[in-house]
């Protein structure tokens, strides 16, 4: 049973989700290979080689892989797929983008966003925004899987796998990058942070969002997140969104400030270990999932909390 994990990285370092995906893979076999596809991505490959449980790192280093276009990535993965029974990638926008192409080209189903491995053929995956969990069995010879990274621990270090170069198929040439506006932040990655401070419409505007939440996040070393309402209202960029269609997070501590708790938001954070909700509406649904609820004016309470920590 050989297993291939596709690493998500920025050529220099691995994205945190790669480790969780690897540990999902290691529930299916003793070791796994990792594919690092990119351009000038040797540092990322070396990082992959040092993960515990990695058998071999395959590196495809080519200019046309620099931007991670789905078309080129999928054709690369398919070209090296022979012999693998499992191909896994994180269910991030990166993995969700190209993995269905891989599955279609291999004429197999994709098993999306698994949250548990039951046995070699059987997996659990959330459906209906996590309001139900489906246990599904794959009938395909090759299992193409994306992994809900928050459901699996991060794989540790300690490996020293061999690094092997692989050739990548020619550039399909159908896509060009026009622009990238990536948020730069000193804070931890939202999907992998231990603590998340998240704000909703109750903050009123983007200025308040920063003024009230940033000091708290700084103090806690937390990532910042937001509800869909706050993103739609333009308080913060889209990549802050936590929820069914945004990011799924499961930190040790999730602090929801001025978030009412629409079912689609809860879908993205209810696996958090401890949830704190601060909201002036005592009936807000967020309190139904919060371990600690504080009813009151967030503009008073959050600065108090920041000061008290």
């Amino acid at each position: 049973m050989s297993i291939l994990v596709i690493a998500e990285h920025d050529n220099a370092t691995l994205k945190a989700g790669t480790r969780n995906t690897l540990s999902a893979a290691l529930k299916l076999g003793i070791t796994a290979d990792i594919l690092v596809a990119g351009y000038n991505c040797q540092p990322a490959a070396r990082a992959a080689a040092s993960l515990a449980g990695v058998n071999k790192v395959k590196v495809a280093d080519a200019a046309h892989l620099a931007d991670g276009f789905a078309e080129n990535l999928a054709s690369l993965v398919v070209s090296i797929a022979a012999g693998y029974s499992y191909i896994l990638a994180p269910a991030s926008t990166y993995g969700k983008n190209f993995m269905p192409r891989v599955a279609a080209l291999l004429d197999v189903a994709q098993i999306s966003e698994i949250s548990a491995v039951v046995d070699a053929n059987t997996f659990v995956r959330p459906i209906y925004a996590g309001n139900a969990l489906a246990t599904v069995e794959s009938k395909d010879a090759v299992k193409v899987i994306t992994v809900r990274t928050t459901s699996f621990d991060a794989a540790g270090d300690g490996g020293s796998a061999a690094i092997e170069n692989v050739l990548s198929p020619a550039d399909l040439g159908c896509t060009t990058l026009v622009e990238r506006e990536l948020s730069v932040s000193e804070r931890p990655e939202l999907g992998a942070a231990k603590i998340v401070v998240s704000g909703g419409r109750g903050l009123g505007n983007g200025e308040n969002y920063q003024r009230v939440l940033a000091p708290l996040a700084d103090k806690l070393g937390a990532a910042l997140g937001a509800s869909r309402a706050a993103v739609d209202a333009g308080f913060v960029p889209n990549d802050y969104q936590v929820g069914q269609t945004g990011k799924i997070v499961a930190p040790q501590l999730y602090i929801a400030v001025g978030i009412s708790g629409a079912i689609q938001h809860l879908a993205g954070m209810k696996e958090s270990k401890v949830i704190v909700a601060i909201n002036k509406d005592a009936d807000a649904p967020i309190f139904q999932v919060a371990d600690y609820g504080l009813v009151g004016d967030l503009f008073e309470l959050v600065p108090q909390l920041t000061a008290a920590l």
Binding site: A132, L133, T135, V136, I275, D291, G293
Partner: peptide, 16 residues
């Protein structure tokens, strides 16, 4: 290609 073996409610989170 996938057979659904079962569908379950997720563990309920209760208000603290």
């Amino acid at each position: 290609r996938l057979i659904t073996r079962s569908v379950n409610e997720p563990p309920k989170r209760t208000a603290g």
